[in-house]
Amino acid sequence: MKPFDYIRADSPDQASDHAAQGGVFIAGGTNLLDLMKLEVMTPDALIDINRLDLNQIDETDDGGLRIGALVSNSDLANDTRVRRHWPVLSRALLAGASGQLRNKATTGGNLLQRTRCLYFYDRAMACNKREPGSGCAARDGFNRSLAVLGTSEHCIATHPSDMAVAMRALGAEVETLTREGETRRLTLDQLYRLPGDRPDIETVLAPGELITAVVLPAPVEGRQTYRKVRDRASYAFALVSVAGIVEMQDGRIARADLAFGGLAPKPWRDADVEAALQGEAPSDALFKKAADVLLRDAQGFGENDFKLPLARRTLVSVLEELTEARR
């Protein structure tokens, strides 16, 4: 770990200023310190934002929730309002990491966690995300856990979050404070960049821009579920996950909000999949068609080829569950 300055921020403005000068925010630290110990990340300064007043969950005027960026994953999962009205979010959080990590990890930090690509984690390996221009050793390496959607020739990393997948399905928005003191709102789709030729740049956040909250829209009708597929029963990253919210009307799918983890460099949502389902009567053929749409541009890299059939099967199963069309 490279020596660094430790600065405890007393106000968001002060935090932003320090960060704009090259510092990195630390909230829970569960991923940042992990990476710093390996010197995969080597910030000159850590700006501790834990004393900022960003740990409330408040109801918004339109019936949604405004979740402070410092709310821990545990507190968010256990919030009675979330459990009742946004259960997919509770489920996603509870499927992630361990009890200890959920107690420390924060809402904002969870969104910004880095990929778990093992080539990113190993400084002896070429990685365009860690060291732009060095190449991608993962592509032709052991890539079992890596992405099949949204990849580029420069990077096939996945985003590891479960929480963000549920938030993507729920249409959550991130609220930030820019260094100029302005508040802006970003959908998760807007927040994350695809790797393209700059996999090292993962979000659109500007230097010093601080995530202050995540805003959930008002609860929606319908059934919600989070299905996570992994190699062991607990404490493992998703190979594939699906967050789904489906509202049925008169035997037809009125709305299907679907997001996917383990498949892409960011929590994945595809409007075409949802459009294919909307207004249709549930059927096996329909679900398979939706999966075809989801995977139309998917590309495996050998070890991770199985993610295509796995995603297909998991999506179909989730849709069966949510439309009550189970066999």
């Binding site: 430790y6 630290g29 310190l33 992990d34 501790d48 009890g99 200890q100 420390k104």
Partner: peptide, 19 residues
């Protein structure tokens, strides 16, 4: 390395004492 901070369990290896 699990310890409790204010009664809650965390991994002591992933936090800084000064925090």
């Amino acid at each position: 390395c699990t310890v409790m901070v204010n009664g809650r369990r965390i991994n002591a290896c992933l936090t800084l004492a000064c925090m």
